[in-house]
Measured scan of single mutants.
Amino acid sequence: KKYKIKVYVKDKKTKKWKKIKEIEVDTKEEALEAIKKLPPNYEVKIVP
């Protein structure tokens, strides 16, 4: 079972969220580790 991490950042001009990358991992633990490495201003969604 794979997890997709969708990473969004808020556009300063439009104030809208835009997706900047998608990370695919195998476990939820890996997903949480990957999220920890991202800057705090990123919004993250984990999709099972």
Rank of each mutant, 00 (worst) to 15 (best):
K1V: 14
K1Q: 14
K1C: 12
K2W: 06
K2L: 10
K2V: 07
K2E: 04
K2D: 03
K2F: 09
K2P: 06
K2S: 10
Y3N: 00
K4V: 14
K4Q: 05
K4S: 07
K4H: 07
K4N: 06
K4D: 01
K4R: 12
I5Q: 00
I5H: 00
I5A: 01
I5E: 00
I5D: 00
I5C: 04
I5L: 13
I5K: 01
I5S: 00
I5R: 00
K6Y: 15
K6M: 14
K6C: 06
K6P: 01
V7T: 01
Y8M: 02
Y8C: 03
Y8T: 00
Y8R: 00
V9S: 06
K10F: 15
D11N: 12
D11V: 07
D11K: 04
D11A: 05
D11M: 06
K12R: 09
K12E: 13
K13D: 08
K13C: 09
K13R: 13
K13A: 10
K13I: 12
K13E: 10
K13L: 12
T14W: 04
T14E: 04
T14Q: 05
T14A: 05
K15Y: 03
K15S: 09
K15P: 02
K15R: 13
K15L: 08
K16F: 05
K16Y: 05
K16P: 00
K16W: 05
W17T: 01
W17C: 04
W17Q: 01
W17K: 03
W17A: 01
W17G: 01
W17H: 02
W17S: 01
K18W: 09
K18V: 13
K18G: 03
K18A: 04
K19L: 15
K19I: 09
K19M: 12
K19H: 04
K19T: 03
I20W: 09
I20E: 02
I20L: 10
I20T: 03
I20N: 01
I20S: 02
K21G: 14
K21A: 13
K21I: 14
K21N: 12
K21Y: 15
K21Q: 13
K21P: 01
E22C: 06
E22N: 03
E22I: 06
E22R: 01
E22A: 03
I23G: 01
I23H: 03
I23N: 01
I23E: 03
E24T: 11
E24N: 10
E24P: 06
V25S: 03
V25T: 06
V25W: 03
V25D: 00
D26V: 05
D26I: 05
D26H: 09
D26N: 12
D26M: 09
D26S: 14
T27D: 05
T27L: 03
T27S: 14
T27N: 08
T27F: 04
K28W: 15
K28I: 13
K28N: 07
K28A: 09
K28T: 07
K28F: 15
K28S: 07
E29V: 07
E29N: 06
E29C: 11
E29R: 09
E29P: 03
E30H: 05
E30A: 11
E30Y: 03
E30M: 08
E30T: 03
A31G: 04
A31Y: 07
A31M: 14
L32G: 04
L32I: 11
L32T: 07
L32Q: 12
L32P: 01
E33S: 09
E33P: 01
E33L: 11
E33W: 03
E33D: 11
E33C: 08
A34S: 06
A34M: 15
A34K: 09
A34N: 04
I35L: 09
I35R: 04
I35H: 02
K36Y: 05
K36S: 13
K36N: 08
K36P: 03
K36L: 10
K37T: 10
K37S: 13
K37N: 11
L38A: 03
L38F: 13
L38Y: 12
L38Q: 03
P39W: 12
P39G: 11
P39Y: 09
P39N: 11
P40M: 09
P40E: 07
P40V: 10
P40C: 11
P40W: 07
P40H: 12
P40R: 10
P40Q: 11
N41W: 12
N41K: 12
N41M: 12
N41D: 12
N41P: 06
N41F: 14
Y42F: 12
Y42M: 08
Y42V: 13
Y42C: 08
Y42W: 13
Y42I: 06
Y42P: 02
E43Y: 15
E43V: 15
E43S: 15
V44A: 13
V44T: 08
V44P: 03
V44M: 06
V44K: 03
V44H: 08
K45M: 13
K45F: 13
K45I: 15
K45C: 15
K45D: 05
I46N: 01
I46S: 01
I46Q: 01
I46Y: 04
I46A: 01
V47T: 11
V47R: 06
V47Q: 07
V47L: 08
P48H: 12
P48E: 14
P48A: 13
P48C: 15
P48S: 14
